[in-house]
């Protein structure tokens, strides 16, 4: 039903999306916690930086990533010298581009849920002998779980659709960085590409609906558990 090239693009998109979400999850939770619970000098700046990918043209983000994480970029050079990790023009780089682009959405959802966590429950946990870290792990995190889930799904969906930053940072290499949007773009540039482009469009819509459905289902189940 699906031809190998389509399968490859779908598999790659899912892989990039999953890794992008998994790797940015701890950072997302940390950023949400900092922004929701802490007051520190420069908070507005951090807030702005987190939200920057939302308002910058994706191409700009991609180009900044290339400058920073490219082989000759300061971080990219260091990563390659010490860990042998190359991000530019690899699928791992595509995951990084997705993470950065989806980060504001992820943090936003988590921050809202963290702000809704009843701090009086955390105080109660302290009086029951739990230290701050233990309280975070056993009370705060479970209570913000619906927000974490929402943030993760949103980020995953955003990652499936990432195009501008990806193509700028890691280009459009078949089998390596040709994700669904990249493949779709390739077809639209070909003379007889309308048919395959349409098929990919349908696939993209189905994937997006599945992600939304899954998130709705999980959110409902969580909400029932947390209802008070």
């Amino acid at each position: 039903m699906l031809d190998p090239m389509e399968l490859e693009a779908i598999e790659l998109s899912l892989r990039v999306g999953a890794w992008s979400v998994l790797c940015s999850l701890p950072f997302g939770i940390a950023a949400a916690w900092l922004l929701a619970r802490r007051d520190f000098p420069g908070k507005a700046l951090v807030d702005g930086l987190v939200h920057l990918p939302l308002v910058l043209p994706p191409v700009v983000v991609g180009y900044l990533l290339l400058l920073t994480f490219g082989r000759n970029g300061p971080v990219g050079h260091w990563l390659e010298a010490w860990f042998g990790v190359t991000l530019a023009f690899t699928w791992q780089g595509a995951a990084l581009a997705s993470s950065v682009m989806a980060f504001p959405l992820m943090v936003r959802a988590m921050r809202l849920s963290l702000e809704a966590v009843d701090r009086r429950l955390e105080a109660a946990a302290r009086t029951l002998g739990a230290g701050p870290l233990s309280v975070f792990a056993t009370v705060t995190l479970p209570l913000m779980a619906p927000g974490i889930l929402a943030g993760a799904i949103l980020a995953f969906a955003r990652s499936l659709g990432e195009f501008g930053a990806t193509i700028t940072f890691v280009s459009n290499i078949p089998g390596e960085t040709r994700t669904l949007p990249n493949a779709l773009y390739t077809y639209t540039q070909q003379v007889d590409g309308e048919g395959p482009a349409l098929r990919l469009t349908v696939i993209a819509v189905v994937l997006a609906l599945l992600a939304l459905g899954a998130s709705e289902l999980l959110a409902r189940r969580l909400k029932r558990r947390l209802a008070s």
Binding site: R120, A124, G129, G131, L143, L226, S228
Partner: peptide, 20 residues
Amino acid sequence: LPPERRRLGYVFQEGRLFPH
């Protein structure tokens, strides 16, 4: 001493049971 090391029990007006 932080609350967790005071070893005092606390029953709050609103119960404050953990909903999860």
